[in-house]
Design a protein around this nucleic acid. Sequence first.
DNA 1: CTTGACCTTCACGCTGACGTGAGTCCCTAC
DNA 2: GTAGGGACTCACGTCAGCGTGAAGGTCAAG
Lengths: 116, 116
Amino acid sequence: MHIGEVAARTGVSARALRHYEDSGLLVPERMGNGYRVYAEADIVRVAQIRAMISAGLGTAVIKRYLDCARLGDHGTSLEMCPDLRAELDSIAERLSVKQAALRETQRRLRELTAAG
Amino acid sequence: MHIGEVAARTGVSARALRHYEDSGLLVPERMGNGYRVYAEADIVRVAQIRAMISAGLGTAVIKRYLDCARLGDHGTSLEMCPDLRAELDSIAERLSVKQAALRETQRRLRELTAAG
DNA sequence: CTTGACCTTCACGCTGACGTGAGTCCCTAC
DNA sequence: GTAGGGACTCACGTCAGCGTGAAGGTCAAG
């Protein structure tokens, strides 16, 4: 299918899809006229990418994740995955810190409003 | 004290301190020669700002928070605080979503490494 | 054959929190 | 007086994930 249909089915803009390709996250086939041709599997892949981006991951990390996943599909070694998992852990921890800081801010704010 | 000492004591760069001033978060006195003069209380304030920025809050929101806090100190009305609290709640919720997505990503990754 | 929808590749714009010079004072010390 | 270490004000650069034209090729339909 073409980029417009992928955009419609995933809710991701065509511009974003091209950006994902620039970042190496998505590599659609090309027709003779240069049009991008996406497979059904790309729909799932786009959903994965969106989930990871909304989780705060950068495209570089996502690319490594997808490479890792692709290696897994072929049953080959997953040497890079431990590093990636450590990175995901550290990102999750940073998010926890952010959440804690935000909750603390909320607590202070509630104190203020209660005292006012 | 001067900006250099504040930078050293807080671990925040002088550039960042000037940026906070541009954003209206910090308003140091000025000497005759134009040098910024910070009070001890500003050390605490910088720590608060850092905590809120690392929590993902923007300077505009932080400014409103500090204004709110300052109003509280003077015992005056806190009309804007409910809005701010709602905003903090929504940010906290978005962070929760991110964390959940990140945990899901970690789960998938662990499945891959387990299957490899 | 022409409209019109859809596709292509540049390439600049935007937001946010600063980094990084450039060029210039200010102040202390030797 | 001269060196040096701050501090000052512009003002452009950076990173990320796109948005938004611009200028033009492609293709099915009337």
